[in-house]
């Protein structure tokens, strides 16, 4: 089973995680057109790349961000949302 790096719990088996999709920046709803809002809601960056994704460690209830290559399934790094990946 794939191992997923949780910034709090370390490497844990995939079964303990829930995948939360790519990280998307929500635009200011008042400032965007209907079409731009629809684009935010429905459209995704589906192509192969290293992407920032939400992952959730179910037993401990930790959401975090992982940078993962969705072609090779390699986790580049992971960090808590508030850490922004710089630390």
């Amino acid at each position: 089973m794939k191992l997923v790096p949780c910034p709090v719990n370390g490497l844990r088996p995939l079964q303990e995680f829930h995948f939360g999709g790519e990280v998307r920046d929500m635009p200011d709803g008042e400032a965007v057109s209907d079409a731009e809002w629809a684009d935010y809601v429905f459209h995704r960056r589906g192509e192969g790349a290293v992407k920032r994704e939400w992952w959730y460690h179910v037993p401990s209830g930790v959401w975090f961000i992982a940078e993962r290559d969705n072609r090779t399934d390699e986790f580049v790094r992971s960090y808590l949302y508030e850490e922004n990946g710089d630390g």
Binding site: M1, R71, T72
Partner: peptide, 13 residues
């Protein structure tokens, strides 16, 4: 499978 991936690998799970 439980998460996005553009790969056709197999899993034991």
């Amino acid at each position: 499978d439980p998460y996005e991936l553009i790969s056709m690998r197999s899993t034991l799970d």
